[in-house]
């Protein structure tokens, strides 16, 4: 199962407030992505909580449709 890059980007931008999303298709197979998400909503949260927000934004697709997503999160100022 794969997911296209635009769908992924839209899910993240919709699910995380004011998110700036950069996605790279690591193998060009629509199944291994790397995402860097910058959002003020990550402020004051630890990495686990930030990544949990990302997984929530993906609405279960992480397991069902996406095999591998490398996640990096940061806040706008850092």
């Amino acid at each position: 199962m794969a997911i296209d890059i635009e769908t992924l980007k839209t899910l993240l931008e919709t699910g995380i407030p004011d998110a700036e999303v950069h996605i790279e298709d690591l193998r060009g197979d629509g199944d291994h992505y790397s995402a860097h998400i910058i959002s003020p909503a990550f402020e004051g949260k630890n990495r686990v909580q930030q990544h949990q927000m990302v997984y929530e934004a993906l609405q279960g697709k992480m397991v069902a449709e996406l095999h591998a997503l490398a996640i990096q999160t940061s806040t706008p100022k850092s």
Binding site: R47, V48, H51, Q52, G60, M62, V63, A70, I71, Q72
Partner: peptide, 28 residues
């Protein structure tokens, strides 16, 4: 996955505390 509220494996625990998955551990 349910226990940690984390959808992927691997998962690292230190002293009973969830540290994270591969990306977080590598970054840390």
């Amino acid at each position: 996955k349910e226990f940690s509220n984390w959808p992927t494996i691997p998962q690292l625990y230190v002293k009973g505390e969830f540290v994270g998955g591969c990306d977080i551990v590598r970054e840390m």
